[in-house]
Design a protein around this nucleic acid. Structure first.
Lengths: 200, 200
DNA sequence: AAGGCTATGTTGACACTGTCAAGATAAAAC
DNA sequence: GTTTTATCTTGACAGTGTCAACATAGCCTT
């Protein structure tokens, strides 16, 4: 079976679908993702995807899962730059988070939008990747608390929820284009970072 | 023309559509809003709505506009309770904001979701209502700065964006059910309020 | 090696969706 | 009373997700 030949059996349709979906997502947005178009892009018929994904939501979840593991890696990389001070890393993290959202708006929309999360529609696979991602936020928060960067009199979990909420909110306001001009991204990030960081 | 009769001309289809849409929104969610169903609910044929709204997005915008003016009134009411201290009002505002989102998740989703805002799809009517709503947030922020409640060394606009971002983020995490249990709403709100308010 | 099982792919069909075009009706304007 | 205009109608089209029934081909067992 040649890799690109028009065989009856595709070979690895699952991966192929995720691939074409990811590129289409970045190019034309989450709303343009239709199973039928994706199937066509992958060179198979409309209903072939159903042998690899329970339904459309499951396919989207699979794409989002990849986004989460990517972001998780990025966050880890920033956090583990021991050469930089905790304060510098915190600030960088804030910028990087919002920057990621601004740079990959469609992926971010998919990852954190209601499409795949509402009605407990999230796939176990997705939860398995997304949950550690938030857990890491708690870990970082605890670290920043220990280094006197965030207030120590609050539960790390609570604090992590609020800080993430802030980043998430800024990201959404930018993505949805509600009012925040993207040219002000950096200023907003610095403002948020300053607000959270305790005076040293 | 009797008000409820099956006349050829409905009388006030525009209002009727918004009404049935609003109730259907609260009951079955934003995704269940289809022009055809709404038309049927209103007792007219599929394409009748097009004589009152440019397209589906315009109808949704009209509903959201009502939500914005409602929220604007609520915010005003809280802010103008001169009997309470600024700090108390700030805290109440935070709780009320997230509470509104948790109580009317579908309306909130519509108001702040990407559906009506993406691609500059927002109707002038909508902007006309939504913009003062954010403007008011800036006004409040400035007031809180003057009363030493929020840091004075930051631009009110920037600060307003960040605080709103936080509330928005918390609301979204709750609505999307990503991880925040709704039983922790109050704790999260207090945590956020404490973080922002300068020690007196 | 022969036969059957199973994973994977196919076409056909159904009930939806938003939206346009063309015609019907009633109210309002002249 | 006639014409214009706003409103509502049916018909049609291109999409959508998803199910059912059928086809193919590779794998497993005997």
């Amino acid at each position: 079976m040649g890799n690109g030949a028009q065989n009856y059996h595709h070979g690895d349709l699952r991966s192929a679908l995720i691939e074409v979906a990811t590129s289409r997502l970045a190019a034309h947005g989450v709303d343009s993702l239709s199973l039928r178009k994706l199937a066509e892009d992958a060179g198979v018929s409309r209903t072939a995807p159903y042998h690899h994904f329970k339904d459309k939501s499951a396919l989207l979840s699979a794409i989002a899962a990849k986004g989460f593991s990517d972001w998780h890696a990025t966050a880890k990389r920033i956090f583990e730059q021991t050469s930089k001070s905790p304060r510098a890393r915190f600030r960088e993290f804030v910028h990087e988070y919002v920057g990621y959202a601004a740079k990959h708006p469609e992926m971010y929309e998919l990852m954190f939008g209601r499409t795949i999360w509402q009605n407990q529609a999230a796939t176990p696979d997705l939860k398995e990747v997304a949950f550690p991602c938030f857990q890491f936020q708690v870990t970082m928060t605890r670290y920043w608390q220990e280094h006197g960067l965030l207030p120590n009199d609050k539960a790390a979990l609570r604090l992590a929820q609020v800080t993430w909420g802030t980043l998430h909110g800024i990201a959404r306001l930018l993505i949805d284009g509600i009012y925040a001009d993207s040219s002000h991204i950096d200023e907003m990030c610095d403002c948020a970072a300053d607000l959270f960081m305790q005076p040293r």
